[in-house]
Write a protein that binds this DNA or RNA. Structure first.
Ligand code: SF4
Ligand code: SF4
Lengths: 155, 155
DNA sequence: TCGATTGGGCACCAATCTGGTGCTAATTGA
DNA sequence: TCAATTAGCACCAGATTGGTGCCCAATCGA
């Protein structure tokens, strides 16, 4: 449906919350209470992020999670890829290229395969350009602009 | 999951098939047999496209569908919007702007809402830039390039 | 006129995905 | 020890998706 999952949104929220707090392990409880997010689900997401080496985790009473790298080096693309796999617009393709022939049986005659891949490349690139830092400190603070025409907002 | 539905893919395939055949009504059967697509499902998709005034339909023995406008004027964005609604990255937003407060209850405290909207705007814009014509006659015929690095392909 | 071919409408289904929860074990600091 | 935390895994209910069945309405050609 061309929409990010809640998991990904929760993951992004959590990561944004941890920006500029390296060394300080933030617990899933703190995040979940701050943003009213289901704690158990958030924990599941953070676990996945830890598996993909985007955050460090520490157990125990004062445990929690913290960013492995600075916010400038973590991209939205990485987060999406970690939480819902490499994005693909069509069923036949993966980001890693179209190796290992997809599962769609009309691939040979499909006239939209390669164009769709080009579009997806663009989307992907855009997500890789967007870092955690730019999430927390956007160049334009659109939220502070009222009555802004969505069509006029720059990327 | 950030992926187009099969319906949308089928719709795009059908539309591409009808490019440069205005006045000639193409039947759903012809398209379905050409690309090995479930006929009934394709018919359902074409019906939706007709409802959104992207194709004309004609009943009867020699009936079928044909493009309403030339291929240069129909964008992928339109097709996607017709078949799966205006794209939204997050659950709270719609393309028509964020009026009519979304259903997500953590909107006020959500730190990623506006950045996500910016990304979605970019995606949307890209789809609106891509016309049916550019699908059938891409500027770069990537399919003919072997061993091409996906990261180097331009949008 | 009549049959064949086409799209339109509507309901319906099975598989999958998604959001979310329960429970238990392992780890850690006070 | 105790409380707090992450890790692992199974499990569930609802939504979405891909796909089909069935009958009606329109149209053309014989
Ligand atoms: S081959 Fe064509 S129809 Fe099949 S998944 Fe790829 S883009 Fe979609
Ligand atoms: S408010 Fe934030 S968490 Fe809720 S749907 Fe919008 S972007 Fe997602």
């Amino acid at each position: 449906m061309l929409q990010l999952t809640k998991r990904t949104e929760y993951g992004l929220i959590a990561l944004v919350h941890m920006v500029d707090r390296r060394g300080d392990f933030v617990s899933a409880r703190e995040i979940s209470e701050t943003y009213q997010v289901p704690r158990r689900l958030l924990a599941e997401v953070l676990k996945d992020l830890a598996k993909h080496a985007l955050v460090d985790s520490q157990r125990g009473a004062t445990g929690g999670y913290c960013l492995v790298r600075p916010a400038e080096e973590i991209t939205v693309g990485e987060v999406v890829a970690a939480l819902e796999g490499a994005p693909k617009l069509a069923g036949c393709e993966t980001l890693e290229a179209s190796r290992a022939g997809g599962e769609c049986d009309l691939e040979p005659s499909c006239p939209i395969r390669s164009p769709l891949q080009r579009i997806r490349e663009g989307i992907w690139r855009q997500m890789q350009r967007t870092t955690l830092r730019s999430l927390v400190e956007p160049v334009f603070h659109i939220t502070n602009l009222k009555h802004v025409d969505p069509e006029s907002t720059l990327i």
